[in-house]
């Protein structure tokens, strides 16, 4: 973004420039008669002001858990067991529930997937946008109505006046997604988490909605964490991309570097899955041998059982997240080198 002009140390984190800093965040769930299951392990991620960070991972990798940890809404009995999350310098772990609640939706907003199931079926679109406005901002009834209508216009909902009084079941998937975006934007938050926001939509609608999110976010200079399973989407919409696997960040890099020089085998696997080159794809996806998926390994590198480049060291030693080039972090003993 604009940082190259104003910030001479582009690419290097600068404290004043930071909006959200996660340091060594771990989330675990206690289990009866078994060791605790760790949903997130030692996750460190920074997001700068105005930056769009893509967070990519398969289901169960901890993407959503990270967003919930940031929101302070880890579902019980899970809890944040280590690390700090700072938002604009404030340690969110030190805030009480009421202070956290006031931040949610106002400073940190969420765009969710499957919005038709997540909106209250008994309230109109106008009421649901109004709810958020009323509880976070001091507005009169009329101001709320005007603002809600204005928001619907901003997310390009056709015939917004009529949609104000529509119920969620009367909306199409794409329309409901726009409503959720309007709710996220309602209080002009500084940080938006988009959690797989377009996964339930048709491809054409998906593109429209993504374009809408991007333009609204960049217009306002809002920072965003863009969670997705589709690594292809990040190429168009994100400044920086982080890959998460089994609750750990395995690679982080700026967009150009990321697609030009991916170094973690899992990243390469994700990219290769889209590749036109048949030979490349077969190699990285493990060829013809049908893999019995055993899940992430508890000892050594979590990715070892699926890695085509696995070696003895990976079996026993857990790799650390190392900065290979400035701003490019990789968690692998044997990073992929460019040929």
């Amino acid at each position: 973004m604009a940082e190259t002009m104003e910030n001479p140390k582009a690419g290097l984190p600068d404290a004043a420039d930071m909006l959200l800093e996660c340091k060594g965040v771990s989330v675990s769930f206690p289990r009866y008669g078994a060791p605790v299951s760790e949903a997130l392990r030692d996750v460190s991620l920074d997001i700068r002001r105005g930056e769009v960070l893509g967070l990519v991972g398969e289901s169960g990798s901890g993407k959503t858990m990270l967003s919930r940890a940031i929101m302070g809404l880890v579902p019980p009995p899970g809890e944040v067991t280590a690390g700090t999350i700072r938002f604009e310098g404030k340690d969110l772990g030190k805030l009480d529930e009421e202070q956290l609640r006031r931040m949610r939706g106002r400073d940190i907003a969420m765009i969710i997937s499957n919005p038709r199931g997540e909106l209250d079926p008994l309230q109109t679109v106008g009421q649901q946008i109004g709810n958020v406005l009323r509880h976070h901002l001091n507005l009169t009834r009329r101001q709320i109505r005007e603002r809600a209508l204005d928001l619907l216009k901003q997310v390009s909902i056709p015939d917004p006046q009529r949609r104000m009084d529509a119920y969620p079941h009367e909306l199409s998937g794409g329309m409901a997604q726009r409503v959720v975006i309007a709710i996220a934007l309602a209080c002009s938050p500084r940080f938006i988490i988009s959690d797989d926001a377009t996964s339930g939509l048709d491809v054409t609608v998906q593109a429209q909605v993504l374009e809408l999110i991007r333009s609204l976010v960049s217009e306002r200079g809002t920072s965003m964490m863009f969670i997705t399973r589709d690594i292809g989407i990040t190429a168009h919409y994100c400044d920086r991309i982080a890959i998460i696997y089994a609750g750990e960040i395995v690679e982080v890099a700026g967009r150009e570097v990321f697609f030009d020089d991916p170094q973690h085998p899992y990243t390469v696997l994700l990219l290769a899955a889209f590749a036109q080159n048949e030979r490349l794809r077969r190699y990285w996806l493990g060829g013809d041998k049908v893999q019995e998926y055993t899940g992430p390994s508890p000892v050594g590198c979590p990715f070892q059982n699926r890695c085509v480049r696995v070696e003895e060291r990976c079996r026993g030693e857990h790799p650390a997240l190392l900065e290979r080039q400035p701003g490019h972090f990789v968690r692998c003993h044997f990073p992929v080198e460019r040929p």
Binding site: R101, N114, D120, P121, N131, H136
Partner: peptide, 24 residues
């Protein structure tokens, strides 16, 4: 339900979330 979780994410007060749940 999903809508209650979403209402929480939007920072609606617990009372408001409970009222939604009750109506449903």
């Amino acid at each position: 339900a999903d809508f209650s979780r979403y209402a929480e994410m939007c920072g609606l007060p617990p009372k408001v979330v409970a009222r939604k749940a009750l109506r449903n």
